[in-house]
Protein backbone atom coordinates (compact mmCIF):
# COMPACT_ATOMS: atom_id res chain seq x y z
CA UNK A 1 0.00 0.00 0.00
CA UNK A 2 1.34 3.40 -0.93
CA UNK A 3 1.55 6.28 1.52
CA UNK A 4 -1.61 8.35 1.84
CA UNK A 5 -2.19 11.98 2.65
CA UNK A 6 -3.78 12.70 6.00
CA UNK A 7 -4.59 16.33 6.66
CA UNK A 8 -6.50 15.56 9.88
CA UNK A 9 -3.16 15.13 11.66
CA UNK A 10 -2.78 18.91 11.34
CA UNK A 11 -5.85 19.69 13.44
CA UNK A 12 -4.14 19.79 16.85
CA UNK A 13 -1.77 22.45 15.53
CA UNK A 14 -4.25 25.15 14.59
CA UNK A 15 -2.87 27.60 17.15
CA UNK A 16 0.68 27.23 15.77
CA UNK A 17 -0.59 27.76 12.24
CA UNK A 18 -2.45 30.89 13.33
CA UNK A 19 0.59 32.22 15.14
CA UNK A 20 2.78 31.67 12.08
CA UNK A 21 0.18 33.18 9.80
CA UNK A 22 -0.13 36.29 11.98
CA UNK A 23 3.63 36.79 12.10
CA UNK A 24 3.97 36.50 8.33
CA UNK A 25 1.08 38.89 7.71
CA UNK A 26 2.24 41.47 10.26
CA UNK A 27 5.85 41.32 9.03
CA UNK A 28 4.66 41.73 5.45
CA UNK A 29 2.32 44.64 6.12
CA UNK A 30 4.86 46.52 8.23
CA UNK A 31 7.82 45.94 5.92
CA UNK A 32 5.81 46.82 2.82
CA UNK A 33 5.01 50.21 4.36
CA UNK A 34 8.50 50.89 5.71
CA UNK A 35 10.23 49.45 2.66
CA UNK A 36 8.26 51.50 0.16
CA UNK A 37 8.68 54.67 2.25
CA UNK A 38 12.43 54.11 2.46
CA UNK A 39 12.44 53.45 -1.28
CA UNK A 40 10.92 56.87 -1.96
CA UNK A 41 13.65 58.52 0.11
CA UNK A 42 16.41 56.47 -1.56
CA UNK A 43 15.06 57.13 -5.05
CA UNK A 44 14.81 60.86 -4.32
CA UNK A 45 18.31 61.08 -2.87
CA UNK A 46 19.83 59.01 -5.67
CA UNK A 47 18.70 61.69 -8.09
CA UNK A 48 19.05 64.87 -6.04
CA UNK A 49 21.64 64.41 -3.27
CA UNK A 50 25.33 65.19 -3.27
CA UNK A 51 27.57 62.84 -5.25
CA UNK A 52 28.95 60.94 -2.25
CA UNK A 53 25.43 60.24 -0.95
CA UNK A 54 24.42 59.06 -4.41
CA UNK A 55 27.38 56.71 -4.63
CA UNK A 56 26.77 55.38 -1.15
CA UNK A 57 23.12 54.66 -1.89
CA UNK A 58 24.04 53.21 -5.29
CA UNK A 59 26.37 50.81 -3.49
CA UNK A 60 23.61 49.80 -1.06
CA UNK A 61 21.16 49.18 -3.89
CA UNK A 62 23.61 47.13 -5.96
CA UNK A 63 24.85 45.02 -3.03
CA UNK A 64 21.28 44.27 -1.96
CA UNK A 65 20.15 43.37 -5.46
CA UNK A 66 23.12 41.12 -6.13
CA UNK A 67 23.23 39.01 -2.97
CA UNK A 68 20.70 36.43 -1.73
CA UNK A 69 18.18 37.57 0.87
CA UNK A 70 19.14 34.72 3.20
CA UNK A 71 22.75 35.93 3.27
CA UNK A 72 21.59 39.48 4.05
CA UNK A 73 19.46 38.07 6.85
CA UNK A 74 22.33 36.00 8.27
CA UNK A 75 24.68 38.95 8.03
CA UNK A 76 22.30 41.15 10.01
CA UNK A 77 21.32 38.50 12.57
CA UNK A 78 24.62 36.64 13.06
CA UNK A 79 27.17 39.09 11.69
CA UNK A 80 26.23 42.42 13.26
CA UNK A 81 26.43 41.15 16.88
CA UNK A 82 30.12 40.63 16.12
CA UNK A 83 30.33 44.41 15.95
CA UNK A 84 28.48 44.72 19.24
CA UNK A 85 25.08 45.41 17.64
CA UNK A 86 22.71 42.87 19.18
CA UNK A 87 19.26 42.46 17.70
CA UNK A 88 16.55 39.86 18.19
CA UNK A 89 15.33 37.62 15.38
CA UNK A 90 12.11 39.44 14.54
CA UNK A 91 13.89 42.82 14.40
CA UNK A 92 16.57 41.34 12.16
CA UNK A 93 13.86 39.94 9.87
CA UNK A 94 12.12 43.31 9.83
CA UNK A 95 15.36 45.18 8.98
CA UNK A 96 16.44 42.69 6.31
CA UNK A 97 13.03 42.69 4.60
CA UNK A 98 12.74 46.48 4.70
CA UNK A 99 16.23 47.02 3.27
CA UNK A 100 15.63 44.38 0.59
CA UNK A 101 12.30 45.78 -0.56
CA UNK A 102 13.61 49.36 -0.43
CA UNK A 103 16.60 48.60 -2.67
CA UNK A 104 14.51 46.96 -5.39
CA UNK A 105 11.68 49.47 -5.17
CA UNK A 106 14.04 52.46 -5.23
CA UNK A 107 15.39 51.20 -8.52
CA UNK A 108 11.86 50.67 -9.88
CA UNK A 109 10.79 54.13 -8.70
CA UNK A 110 13.88 55.73 -10.21
CA UNK A 111 12.78 54.47 -13.61
CA UNK A 112 9.35 56.02 -13.01
CA UNK A 113 10.85 59.31 -11.85
CA UNK A 114 13.23 59.63 -14.79
CA UNK A 115 10.24 59.25 -17.12
CA UNK A 116 8.89 62.61 -15.90
CA UNK A 117 9.62 65.41 -18.36
CA UNK A 118 11.85 68.15 -16.90
CA UNK A 119 9.63 70.89 -18.29
CA UNK A 120 6.73 69.71 -16.13
CA UNK A 121 8.63 70.38 -12.93
CA UNK A 122 9.58 73.84 -14.17
CA UNK A 123 5.97 74.47 -15.12
CA UNK A 124 4.93 73.55 -11.59
CA UNK A 125 7.41 76.01 -10.13
CA UNK A 126 6.21 78.68 -12.54
CA UNK A 127 2.64 78.11 -11.33
CA UNK A 128 3.78 79.06 -7.85
CA UNK A 129 4.12 75.59 -6.27
CA UNK A 130 6.96 75.15 -3.80
CA UNK A 131 9.81 72.75 -4.66
CA UNK A 132 8.35 70.12 -2.37
CA UNK A 133 4.81 70.56 -3.66
CA UNK A 134 5.80 70.35 -7.29
CA UNK A 135 8.04 67.37 -6.58
CA UNK A 136 5.25 65.59 -4.78
CA UNK A 137 2.43 66.26 -7.24
CA UNK A 138 4.31 66.31 -10.52
CA UNK A 139 7.11 63.81 -10.05
CA UNK A 140 6.47 61.45 -7.18
CA UNK A 141 2.78 60.56 -7.36
CA UNK A 142 2.70 60.09 -11.16
CA UNK A 143 5.95 58.08 -10.94
CA UNK A 144 4.35 55.89 -8.28
CA UNK A 145 1.27 55.41 -10.46
CA UNK A 146 3.43 54.54 -13.47
CA UNK A 147 5.46 51.83 -11.74
CA UNK A 148 2.72 50.68 -9.34
CA UNK A 149 2.31 47.21 -10.94
CA UNK A 150 6.04 46.55 -10.62
CA UNK A 151 5.95 47.66 -6.98
CA UNK A 152 3.08 45.23 -6.29
CA UNK A 153 5.08 42.36 -7.74
CA UNK A 154 8.18 43.32 -5.79
CA UNK A 155 6.28 43.52 -2.50
CA UNK A 156 4.83 40.06 -3.17
CA UNK A 157 8.31 38.70 -3.95
CA UNK A 158 9.53 40.01 -0.59
CA UNK A 159 6.52 38.44 1.18
CA UNK A 160 7.27 35.07 -0.43
CA UNK A 161 10.96 35.50 0.33
CA UNK A 162 10.09 36.04 3.99
CA UNK A 163 9.71 32.23 4.28
CA UNK A 164 13.46 32.32 4.89
CA UNK A 165 13.17 34.22 8.19
CA UNK A 166 12.15 30.89 9.73
CA UNK A 167 15.86 30.04 9.53
CA UNK A 168 16.71 32.56 12.25
CA UNK A 169 13.83 31.16 14.34
CA UNK A 170 11.19 33.79 13.65
CA UNK A 171 7.87 32.01 14.23
CA UNK A 172 6.40 32.67 10.78
CA UNK A 173 4.32 30.37 8.56
CA UNK A 174 7.33 28.35 7.45
CA UNK A 175 8.58 28.04 11.02
CA UNK A 176 5.13 26.77 12.01
CA UNK A 177 5.34 24.21 9.20
CA UNK A 178 8.78 23.03 10.33
CA UNK A 179 7.58 22.90 13.93
CA UNK A 180 4.50 20.83 13.09
CA UNK A 181 6.28 18.40 10.81
CA UNK A 182 8.87 17.77 13.52
CA UNK A 183 6.01 16.63 15.80
CA UNK A 184 3.63 14.72 13.56
CA UNK A 185 6.10 13.64 10.83
CA UNK A 186 3.58 14.62 8.16
CA UNK A 187 5.95 16.91 6.28
CA UNK A 188 4.29 16.72 2.89
CA UNK A 189 0.79 17.57 4.15
CA UNK A 190 2.09 20.46 6.24
CA UNK A 191 4.15 21.98 3.46
CA UNK A 192 1.35 21.54 0.95
CA UNK A 193 -1.06 23.39 3.21
CA UNK A 194 1.44 26.17 3.97
CA UNK A 195 2.26 26.57 0.27
CA UNK A 196 -1.44 27.03 -0.41
CA UNK A 197 -1.63 29.68 2.32
CA UNK A 198 1.29 31.56 0.73
CA UNK A 199 -0.45 31.34 -2.63
CA UNK A 200 -3.62 32.83 -1.14
CA UNK A 201 -1.60 35.52 0.61
CA UNK A 202 0.06 36.47 -2.68
CA UNK A 203 -3.32 36.59 -4.37
CA UNK A 204 -4.88 38.62 -1.56
CA UNK A 205 -1.96 41.02 -1.53
CA UNK A 206 -2.25 41.68 -5.25
CA UNK A 207 -5.99 42.26 -4.89
CA UNK A 208 -5.71 44.69 -1.97
CA UNK A 209 -2.85 46.56 -3.64
CA UNK A 210 -4.97 47.00 -6.76
CA UNK A 211 -7.94 48.22 -4.70
CA UNK A 212 -5.75 50.78 -2.95
CA UNK A 213 -4.22 51.80 -6.28
CA UNK A 214 -7.62 52.37 -7.82
CA UNK A 215 -8.49 54.83 -5.05
CA UNK A 216 -5.17 56.58 -4.61
CA UNK A 217 -4.39 56.99 -8.28
CA UNK A 218 -7.98 57.57 -9.37
CA UNK A 219 -7.28 61.01 -10.81
CA UNK A 220 -4.29 59.60 -12.70
CA UNK A 221 -6.43 57.18 -14.65
CA UNK A 222 -7.20 59.70 -17.37
CA UNK A 223 -3.52 60.32 -17.99
CA UNK A 224 -2.72 56.64 -18.08
CA UNK A 225 -5.06 55.87 -20.91
Amino acid sequence: MGPTLDFLTLLPYVSELLKGFTTTVVLTVVTTLTGLSLAVAVAYLRVNAQPWVRWGLGGYVEVTRNTPFIVQLFFIFFGLPGLGIKIDAITAAFIAMTLNLAAYSAEILRAGISATAKGQLEAGRALGMTTLQSYRHIVLVPAFARVYPALISQSIIVMLGSAVVSQISVFDLTYAANFIQSRNFRSFEVYLLITLVYLLLAFGMRRSFMLVGKRVFAYQQGEQR
Partner: peptide
Protein backbone atom coordinates in the same frame (compact mmCIF):
# COMPACT_ATOMS: atom_id res chain seq x y z
CA UNK B 1 1.14 31.42 -11.47
CA UNK B 2 1.75 28.56 -9.04
CA UNK B 3 5.52 28.90 -9.17
CA UNK B 4 5.48 32.68 -9.09
CA UNK B 5 2.94 32.79 -6.27
CA UNK B 6 4.63 30.45 -3.80
CA UNK B 7 7.96 30.69 -1.99
CA UNK B 8 10.88 28.92 -3.63
CA UNK B 9 11.66 27.49 -0.20
CA UNK B 10 8.26 25.74 -0.12
CA UNK B 11 8.80 24.36 -3.63
CA UNK B 12 12.11 22.99 -2.43
CA UNK B 13 10.55 21.46 0.70
CA UNK B 14 7.64 19.94 -1.20
CA UNK B 15 9.95 18.20 -3.65
CA UNK B 16 12.50 17.13 -1.05
CA UNK B 17 10.03 15.92 1.56
CA UNK B 18 7.35 14.99 -0.91
CA UNK B 19 9.62 12.51 -2.66
CA UNK B 20 10.50 11.01 0.69
CA UNK B 21 6.83 10.82 1.72
CA UNK B 22 6.02 8.98 -1.52
CA UNK B 23 8.62 6.40 -0.56
Amino acid sequence: DLFQGTPLLMQLFLIFFGAAAMG
